[in-house]
Amino acid sequence: MLADEQHRRTPENFPVGRVQRRGIPGGGWSAADIPLLDEAAELIGEEKAGPHGDGSLAGRAARDQRWAYGHVVVDEAQELSAMAWRMVLRRVPGRSMTVAGDVGQTSAPGGADSWEGALRPHAGDRWRMARLSVNYRTPAEIMDAAAPLRRDDGGPVSVRAEGVLPWRMRTTERELAGRLAAIAARRRDGVRWRSSPLVIESGTLSRAYPGKGVT
């Protein structure tokens, strides 16, 4: 990255709050680039931003690299990378945060394996973990089925049950289209299924339904 005045990209070229709306040749920006651009702006410095966005409090904060907050709430925090944590903490000098997440559900490649590893580098011993004991969203049947796959003690206890047990069915690629049609027919006939997720090999549906735009 070049930092001289001739080549340096200023906030007018890629303000951090708007990188997803500005493309670059070869694929454009992604959400993973935002912490990197924020780190670059912190190290290199940036010129005064132009009049982007509205005049609301959120718009002013998005335009100001030095904007700070007294307290920040971070949801799905297990997905934040180490660089993303640096971006967040630059805006919370007092380190006052409410962090919500579940490291048993981390899916991002750079996400957290433990809260100790995610928070201790930034907060030392000045953090406290509270485990939620009640699950208001996921039915008991799903939690029971997922318990052997979780990396913790099984998670919170569900307060409701649907009365429908999860099930699975093995099939071949040749039989897949017919099996899916049968499942759809059962739904039309009033079987009480709120959702029917499929776990299959990538590309299988497109081969089962050629020319249908199914992926």
Score class of each variant (00 low, 15 high):
E46L: 01
E47Y: 08
S56D: 00
E79F: 07
H71N: 11
P25H: 11
D64M: 06
A31K: 07
R86W: 09
A100V: 15
G28Q: 12
R18E: 08
D33V: 05
V72F: 03
A77Q: 11
S96K: 12
A31T: 12
V99F: 06
R9N: 00
T10Q: 07
P35T: 11
R95E: 01
V73C: 08
A58G: 11
G55Q: 03
M87L: 07
V16D: 00
V88C: 00
N13D: 07
E39M: 08
G17E: 04
G55T: 09
L36N: 13
A41I: 02
I24Q: 07
G104W: 04
A100G: 14
R95T: 06
R60Q: 13
G26A: 06
A49M: 01
K48T: 07
G28S: 09
A41R: 02
T98A: 10
G94T: 14
A32Q: 10
V19W: 05
K48F: 02
R91K: 13
R22Y: 10
E79D: 14
P51T: 09
R63W: 06
A41P: 03
L57H: 06
R21L: 05
Y69Q: 03
A32E: 13
G23F: 01
R66K: 15
T106M: 13
R21F: 05
Q20P: 01
R21W: 10
G28H: 12
G50F: 07
T106W: 07
M83S: 15
P51H: 09
A84S: 08
T98N: 03
Q105A: 12
T106H: 09
A68C: 15
V103H: 08
Q65H: 10
E79Q: 11
E76D: 08
G55L: 10
D38K: 05
L80N: 04
V73E: 01
A77S: 14
S30F: 01
D102T: 12
Y69I: 12
G23Y: 02
R22G: 04
R18Y: 04
T10K: 00
G104P: 02
R91E: 06
Q65A: 08
E42Q: 03
A100H: 11
H71Q: 13
F14E: 09
L36E: 12
D64L: 05
G59Q: 05
R86V: 14
G53I: 04
G53T: 06
R22K: 12
Q78C: 14
A58Q: 09
L80I: 09
Q78M: 15
W85D: 00
G94V: 14
L89I: 14
A77G: 15
A41Q: 04
A84G: 13
R18A: 05
G17S: 12
G28V: 05
Q65F: 07
T98P: 05
G53V: 04
S107T: 12
E12H: 13
